[in-house]
Simulated scan of single mutants.
Amino acid sequence: MGNGWIDLGGQVAVVTGAASGIGKATCFALAGAGAKVIALDLDLQGAQSVATAIGGAAHGLDVTSEFEWHAVADWIEAEYGRLDILVNSAGIAISDSVGDADLVNYHKTFAVNVEGTLLGMQVALDFMRKQGKGAIVNLASTASLKGNPIMASYGASKATVAHFTRSAALQNARTQNDIRINAVLPGLVETAMADDFYGIFDKIGSPDDVRGAFTTGRPARPEEIADVILFLASDRASFVSGASIVVDRAASA
């Protein structure tokens, strides 16, 4: 994506879940294209480390808190006066099955993955509608494409994210605003969440066995997902909105 093919100079970008994994890689990709990046994470120290490395800014955020989202929005308005790009990368994966009596995992999963994404879009759209332009990229998952008996809430939450993405994209496409909203659906990616994934599917065997079952050769690197996000956030994807783009090297094909 180098050599000036994507230029985000002058744009302000916010990334949730920025302290690690795909979120961290996305911060580096956006900053590398010239954006001023704000790293948001519940792990403020981790977000600050990323911000220092890329010359950006950091702010602590619990994505499930409407109050904290509005506080961040006020801070962005005061510091930058605009918001051009939002990447909703924060997410969790917990093992559960349909019919479990305990709904705690369901509520926690949907609070972070769905409500956190919706609150982020709400804040970003307030800025973007005033500007008449903007791009939002939501992280869904290939887990949303088929059933999973031991990660039911996770897959359902990511399917919900993809659906809200399509609905919001269509809603904004019918206005005079140039606001694009897309979802990226990664397969297995080498992140801290993947380590949890290996534990959840330990009945398959070793981590290598799990990787063999869920990939076509290897998991993705976070940077490979971040490059797709970078494209969607840029004007190079000016006619792409409402898309759910699978990035798993044909594993779910």
Rank of each mutant, 00 (worst) to 15 (best):
L8H: 08
R82D: 07
H163W: 04
K203G: 00
G120S: 10
N148V: 08
Q48S: 12
M121F: 04
G60N: 04
S153R: 02
A13K: 08
A237L: 09
F239E: 11
S153L: 09
D202R: 15
G116W: 03
T216F: 10
H59L: 10
W75D: 14
I225L: 11
F197Y: 14
G212C: 01
V14K: 05
A58I: 01
I150G: 01
G2F: 04
A220L: 13
M128D: 03
Q171G: 01
S238C: 10
L44K: 13
K108C: 01
L185V: 06
I85S: 05
A253W: 05
S157W: 04
F201P: 03
F164P: 00
D235I: 10
G46S: 07
H59D: 02
G56H: 03
P222W: 02
R236F: 00
S65P: 09
E77I: 08
S20G: 00
F197T: 12
L119I: 08
G4C: 09
T160D: 06
D227T: 14
L83P: 02
D126Q: 14
A57W: 06
S206M: 05
E79R: 15
G9V: 10
A18M: 04
G99D: 10
L170I: 13
A111E: 13
N177E: 10
T216P: 00
G55F: 05
Q122C: 00
I94A: 06
M151K: 03
A25C: 04
L145F: 08
I38V: 15
G23I: 02
